[in-house]
Design a protein around this nucleic acid. Sequence first.
DNA 1: GTGAAAGCGCTAACAG
DNA 2: CTGTTAGCGCTTTCAC
Lengths: 359, 359
Amino acid sequence: MTAEGKMTVTLKDIAEEVGVSPATVSLAIRGRKAGKKSLSPGTVEAVLKAAKKLGYRPNMLAKNLASQSSMTIGVLLSSLVFGSESFLEGVNMVLGGEFTSLLSVYNRDAALERAEMEVLIGNRVAGIVAACSGDPENLQIYKDVSQTYNIPIVLYSRRMPGIKLPVVRADHFESTFKATRALQELGHKRIRYAGISFSKWIETHKLYVEGYEAAMRDAGLENEMRGAVKLGVKDWVKAPNVIAEAANILDTWAADRERATALLVDNDWLAYQVLDECRRRGIRVPQDLSLMSIGDYRFSALSFVDLSTMRVKGEHPMEMMVGIGTAELLRDLMAGGKWDGNDILLPVEPCMRTTTGRV
Amino acid sequence: MTAEGKMTVTLKDIAEEVGVSPATVSLAIRGRKAGKKSLSPGTVEAVLKAAKKLGYRPNMLAKNLASQSSMTIGVLLSSLVFGSESFLEGVNMVLGGEFTSLLSVYNRDAALERAEMEVLIGNRVAGIVAACSGDPENLQIYKDVSQTYNIPIVLYSRRMPGIKLPVVRADHFESTFKATRALQELGHKRIRYAGISFSKWIETHKLYVEGYEAAMRDAGLENEMRGAVKLGVKDWVKAPNVIAEAANILDTWAADRERATALLVDNDWLAYQVLDECRRRGIRVPQDLSLMSIGDYRFSALSFVDLSTMRVKGEHPMEMMVGIGTAELLRDLMAGGKWDGNDILLPVEPCMRTTTGRV
DNA sequence: GTGAAAGCGCTAACAG
DNA sequence: CTGTTAGCGCTTTCAC
């Protein structure tokens, strides 16, 4: 559109136009003010004018290559599911201003996870936020990232066994502990927990179970505790599977000689499925069964859902809070900060609505 | 971890190790088989072995700079909301194997949109998928992208006024047209449409209104058509606002001397809010009011929601279908294909559930 | 088959 | 204050 027909205008083009050297243009454009060196206002102005005129656009590839740095961060997700958008928004709120995210998704495939990590390394990202699979096969690449390439990395939701990397997550143990306690306060004694374990490398499920069991023991209810319903390792993201799990959970519940009066499940989406299944089976909630879960998805607050659930304290949904926390830590690390060695556990609190009632 | 303490290993390192030139290593590593030139199997093997041993990782910045190409695509979103994760998954299904996405979000801020586009250009992405704001202020940069930089770009959901760029979207006109018709088939005559217009540059709302009005006219119901409830330009993403809109919609409905028997709204999330508000006001759905919407979010199929809605034909949710379609077109364009000049409109169909009933 | 050399566009000392 | 000189790590003719 401009007079020049040149495809892409470079620093050199500007240099020629203005009659200075490329180096000077480089300095002028980046506003080399603060440092020791400064350019004459006249030159700077001339350069800027020419840049505008020629439609100059810095080539970040060249810039990054030369400066050995980049304004890109890598975001590695295990999958794109409901909640991912919220997590990404959290990350974006904190880091979006300065950095752009390279989004990598490995769909719970450890080999793909490695490949995606290679891409992030290859692009020399300034930092990484990752939901690792935890598969020990991939330990080496996490070591490479943080040790060989010195790329700051923050894990979210779960740790990588074998290497001490900072983790930011909701407090899983407290989630089931407090939820169970909240149910107890409503008079429930026969409380069951049902959760899904994604993979044996991820400790989330274990922490949930521990929190539940601790609360039951504390209340002297170990006799009432038939243990958590153990669900298989599945990709529950796909609706059909979850529906099957909900049916499974209710079958187990119904088969009990002494049916539980309250059921605590893994996450809100699973709770929706259970609610759905209860409706089909004519099980009244909360009269016949109190239902509680973890996550407080936005839907749960709708009056026709009104699900009792655990939420992360703060003004945002759980996933976003985790995204914010993760990004904040990464921001600090990229700025040269040191990690104090402690995982960051976001505090949770119960949010009791109408799917739970007194016994 | 390896014997060498070198921070980062390059082609040259391998070359020295093996005793060949960097150029040869470059060819060997990329498997220069098909072309005219071929390397002796021995060399290739030696190079590969050395690469493995030294832990070589290609520097994509350098590679892209030198080859003037990149395996990165830009994904520009107006905001991260429920559905974004689904769209991204669709894009990832198609392009995820070869490309990595640079994610840019501009939060409906035209200036930010421009800045993010600059970033994508600066990184010399191989292609762009964008949900543009439509703001004419940004026309130039879209021209620059596709004309000056020859970066293939596919718009999703809406077009950019002033420039002919390929658009992939659900068929908005047909959505309300068919929905209205479906309601008519249930015997409804007093049907209202309520939608939200994000910005005056985006034609979605207009198409929705046109589809609705066409269906009403076709059925000779223009007298029953009081026009669509026009809602302001708002960031309805934030729950409080939507709740306010739902109240607004129902206020308008209630104030009508002859109340509509059926209400058609913009999207499922808004429908949930209306459902919520109906429940609070004691309006029975569908006895007092039939409710239908557009989108068929996963949540809508749950038995305790069971929302009648319009869906995109196919096996995936609307957003994912659009993501897939957008990515497929971009893939073709990046492969050198030509756009035939027609927008791609994904066909839609009604999915009648229990929030709608016979009059 | 393989190597030498030039260059992608920019940065970063170090001179002048 | 500004220009020169080297690269950053890889690709890509074009000779040998």
